[in-house]
Design a protein around this nucleic acid. Sequence first.
DNA 1: CATCTGACCTAGT
DNA 2: AACTAGGCCAGAT
Length: 116
Amino acid sequence: MPQQDVKVDVFQRDVFELTRAIPFGRVTSYGAIARSIGAAGASRRVGWVLNTSFEAVPPVPAHRVVNRKGLLTGRMHFPEGHSMEAQLEAEGIEVTDHGVVNFEAVFWDPQVEWLD
DNA sequence: CATCTGACCTAGT
DNA sequence: AACTAGGCCAGAT
């Protein structure tokens, strides 16, 4: 197996695992995920990987990942009928104008709060 | 093969 | 505070 594929698989596995650890009703950011899996600066790749997460089992709550300002930058990539905003609001997170309301209060930092 | 693009972020000016 | 540049790296053109 080519080295590159291994790298991708590990990165993908880590992103999925951490994203699944986001508590119900909380959100985190691409950069926070990247940092806590030892890939600081690779935040763009996090989004790329999450785009492959919709059919993963167990499910990956990709809707709980927003950008640093709390904006739903990934909202166009969600499957039809499962919009990011709808899923967040179903968890009690208010969303206005493509952004999480009271973002700082619901933000979950894996580095600080992810005790494994 | 060369460039551009993107679910982003940090650091420097 | 606004802006740019650079880094990340797989796909698309």
